[in-house]
Design a protein around this nucleic acid. Structure first.
Lengths: 224, 224
DNA sequence: CAAGGCATGGAACGGCGTTCCAGGCTGGAG
DNA sequence: CTCCAGCCTGGAACGCCGTTCCATGCCTTG
């Protein structure tokens, strides 16, 4: 450290759980999911690892708290006077965009128990399902299906982002390489996948995600 | 537990990629996802970590290979003369049961890129989507939606299994505790989730999963 | 002003994935 | 037969991780 010539620097703002979680989010956004380290976090906060443990029980809680902070923001928007379908789409898009902006969130949500961060999401989805006049016994199924679909896309997006980042190429080149691989598959063994190569290359993740939501919504309201 | 550390059986049999992957699967099934260690694997194979690296590039490849081995078996069954709907249900159930038998598989699939193990699954699903007479532009969307839903459930199941195992309680007690927590939520903030507590306690994971598949299938065929 | 506890941060521990390298083993050439 | 060059082995070592421990400050309270 710097030689202390004179009065010690003005003490920084004291450590707090909130400051730690904020720094963790910044680190996650900057360096990626694997870059969140107690040592790196301590350095960024100009402290040691031990001090962090005074405010946070461990890495799992840190990740959960970071996910909750980001997800809460994404789900905060009120569902105006729109139709339930539109409200679900808006909700899902909010989550999608949050994951797009913070790729680590996808992996965190896909692999976290149904505890803290996702309860709110489930609740918000469930209210719209109820507003769709789904009979009571099917509400749980419908809300769960929507949530599970969203989490599945979350995990895949996170995995893709990780792969693209690891190969140091942009998303475009990564998709292009995958599509080329698909188009060269054995026509006998992969007749369907092969013909989807073009669509894989040109598709829009966001639109495909929304189309899937619409598919499930259509299934929910189909029987009536 | 029984002390089963490295029996010095036929030492003649040479190390091979297949033997390593098999041992990795056994270790994953026995000790869980976090228990797969190059040191533990080396001990089980009566060798050192360095020898393993001669046949396998790293842990990621090991996990992918293990997942592929288990998933290939689950997806191997031929789809007989059933309807496309029934074929998709059978396919999905095969994956579900494989994850149920090998909980580590859920986390692995949910977080792996669309590469090796899941291409076959996508292909099989896609063929049935095509058999449903879905117009070409929508086939990619429909197959992706089904796959993403399956992967979402996979991730959640894996996370739940991990939580239940960590708390050293059975699935029943774990569910019961969660349901009780749901029933005690603030009625103002969680009106929907609260009323679903009973269903959470009594529901059948397998049936809920299938019901979600049926929802998506209904959405796929709804417009006609 | 003295005292005590909240908060701090550096050092250390055990374990991980991975790398390195000194050796056995084997099969073909001389 | 000998010899040697490669494949394969496996133990030791490296660097990093999450986590724990603890001596030490600071700041409030009496």
């Amino acid at each position: 450290m710097a030689v202390s010539t004179g009065r010690p620097e003005r003490r920084q703002e004291p450590l707090s759980r909130e400051r730690i979680v904020t720094a963790a989010c910044e680190l996650l956004d900057t360096v990626g999911a694997g870059g969140l380290t107690f040592r790196a976090l301590a350095e960024r906060l100009a402290t040691g690892p031990g001090a962090i443990y005074w405010h946070v029980t461990g890495k799992a809680e840190l990740l959960t708290a970071a996910a909750e902070a980001v997800l809460a923001e994404a789900v905060a928007a009120e569902d105006g006077g729109a139709t339930p379908q539109e409200a679900v789409r808006a909700l899902a898009l909010g989550v999608f965009d949050a994951i797009d902006a913070h790729p680590w969130l996808g992996a965190q949500l896909a692999g976290s128990p149904g505890e803290s961060p996702m309860l709110r999401l489930f609740e918000r989805i469930g209210r719209q399902v109820r507003a769709l006049a789904v009979p009571e016994p099917a509400q749980f199924t419908a809300a769960s299906a929507l949530l599970n679909y969203i989490l599945g896309v979350a995990g895949q997006n996170a995995a893709n982002a990780r792969t693209a980042a690891a190969s140091a190429t942009g998303r475009g080149e990564f998709l292009d390489a995958a599509a080329t691989a698909w188009s060269r598959l054995d026509p006998q063994e992969y007749p369907f996948t092969r013909t989807m190569a073009g669509r894989l290359r040109t598709h829009d993740d966001r639109e495909e995600f929304l189309a899937g939501i619409d598919l499930i919504l259509a299934g929910i309201t189909a029987g009536r």
